[in-house]
Structure formats: structure tokens, C-alpha cells
Amino acid sequence: MASAPDGNGYWLVSAAGQVHAYGSAKHHGDSPDSYRGTIVDLAATPDGSGYWITSSSGQIFSYGSARHHGGAARSGSDPVTGITSTPTGEGYWQVVADHQVSPNGDARFFGTLLLDEAYDRKYPSFTGTVGAWGGHTNGRIPSSLLCRVERGDHRLRCDAATALLALDAAFREEFNETLRVTDTYRSYDGQVRTRGRWCQQRMCYKAAIPGTSNHGWGLAIDIGSGVNSFGTPQHEWMRQNAGQFGWIHPLWAQQGGSNPEPWHWEFTGTG
């Protein structure tokens, strides 16, 4: 539902994508017949001359004067549940069921419920810590204590996942593309397999000894999107800005380090 600018009307959208305009609100179109998931919400431009419709899968459909700025960079299978416009009408925020917020256009990221006091009270023993946390061993952390990031089953400790979402929002604002994640939490068995693959190539040093990797704490990521090559504008941007969001490029992974990996970054906390 969205209100008309003069307060004398509103729009309602059905789960099938039909838009119903009442009072002073003007109809600008219905969603197409083909979309993923269900239609969940509508947001109007500030002057009411257009609106956006969002599906649960994060798709955006634009009508009237509303401009398309991309869909939600959501995590895993959690559905998008809502959308609201920025004051300028040049962007919007989409809300995901796991409390993530996905900014698009000129919308900025300001935080999510994952960082509020309730979350800190729920997990007081490890929020913001580096290394071992929660009383679990490396690579054997229950999935219920990890939060999904990107698509697929990539997971991180929840404060790291939220910080990555903020970093991604800033990256998208700079480069107009999502920060693509290729690896995150790595189970102990996964670490064994990764080490084994490198050892078969006589390059065991390319992977940590199983049970010692920061991937096993849900505090390390491997990323692409140009960051995975030294000297690119994307990599240089990360070097200059990732620290604001609690992410660092460890010395051993830097150019000239003992095992250069431009794609590997680790979370040290935002406190």
C-alpha cells in the first residue's frame, strides 16, 4: 500500500500484481504476468506520477515516472517483504524477511535489525569478537548461528554478514554492481577438501591447515567483481574503504605478502 501525495488517495497491489488506485491516486499499470515469487508491495514516487512494484524474489517493476534502479541483493531464499521510496524518488529501499535492507539508486544503507541491541543481547558472547567464538570449534559452527549472504548457501557470523551488506551497498554506489562473493564460511570437512585440492598440485601453502582458517569462523570472504585482481579500481577502492566496515586485507594476502590473494578479506569488527 502507498499513499497519494495529497493524502486523498492510495494504491493497493494484490499478490497477483494488480494495482488498484483509489481517490486521487492514478493508475499507471499492473505487474507483468511473468515474475518470480509473489507480488508483495508497492511504493509511489514523491509526486505520485509513478510507482514501483516488488516481488518476493526482489524483482522491481517500474511504472509512470518511476525509474528502475535494480532489485534487492538479498541473501539465500529469504523473501523481500516491502519497499519504500527515497524523498527524491531516485531510489528505494527493499526489506528482506531476515531483517536485511537493500538500498538501490540514491538510497543509502544505515543499518539493519541485525545490529540492534536485541541482537547484541541475544549473542553477547561473541558479537564483535575476532577468532574463536560461541564455544564452538573452527569449521563446526551450527548453521543457525550464521547468516546467509549473497545467493546460494554462503554464510558468515551475523555481524560480519551485516557489515558485508553495508560494504556491498557502498561498493554498488561506486561501481554500479554488486560485490560478488565466491566463498565465506568453510566447514572443517570443506577445509580438508580445499587443502587436499591444493596439495594435489603440490601447493599446500595455498590453503590453511584444516581447523585454522578464518573461513572456519565465518569471518573471511573471497570476492570477485574486480577486487580479485591487484591494481584494479575495485581492488584499490576496497583497500581504501573496506576498513570503515570492519573488513581488512591481511598482510599475508596483500601484494608482496607471503601468499598474495587479492580476493581474500577478513572481518575484524566495526567497533
Rank of each mutant, 00 (worst) to 15 (best):
T194Q: 12
A208P: 07
D120V: 09
P142S: 06
Q200M: 10
N214Y: 14
N241F: 10
I141W: 02
Q240S: 15
R202V: 06
W217Y: 12
V96S: 03
N228A: 12
A242F: 07
D168T: 09
A97R: 00
I221H: 01
T232A: 12
A97H: 03
S213K: 03
Q240A: 15
G152E: 08
G231P: 10
H154Y: 08
L165F: 08
L179G: 09
G196A: 13
C158L: 03
R180M: 11
G128S: 13
R180F: 13
Q240P: 05
V130A: 11
S213M: 03
E177D: 11
L114Q: 07
N214V: 03
S125W: 06
G131P: 00
G111Q: 01
H235M: 10
D98I: 02
G134V: 05
R193Y: 08
H235C: 11
Q100G: 05
R148G: 03
R197T: 13
L219H: 12
V227H: 07
L114P: 02
I221T: 03
F171N: 06
L179V: 09
R157Y: 05
N104W: 00
S213E: 05
A97F: 01
P124V: 01
T194D: 13
K122A: 15
D116N: 15
L113M: 11
R140S: 02
A169W: 00
D222H: 01
V192D: 07
D189G: 13
Q200T: 09
R151L: 12
E177N: 08
S143E: 14
R148Y: 07
C158M: 04
N214P: 09
V96N: 00
T178A: 13
N241E: 14
A170F: 05
H136T: 06
G131Q: 01
L115K: 04
V181E: 00
G216V: 02
R186D: 02
A242Q: 01
R193Q: 14
E174S: 11
E174W: 09
Q240Y: 08
G211F: 06
C147S: 10
P103S: 03
S225N: 12
A242V: 05
C147V: 00
P210Q: 07
R155S: 08
A97G: 00
V130E: 10
H235N: 15
V192G: 07
F230R: 14
A97D: 01
P142H: 06
W198F: 13
R239L: 13
K206W: 10
W198R: 11
S213Q: 02
Q234A: 15
Y185M: 07
N241K: 13
E150R: 06
T137V: 08
C204G: 15
R157V: 13
A118F: 10
E117C: 01
G152H: 09
D222W: 00
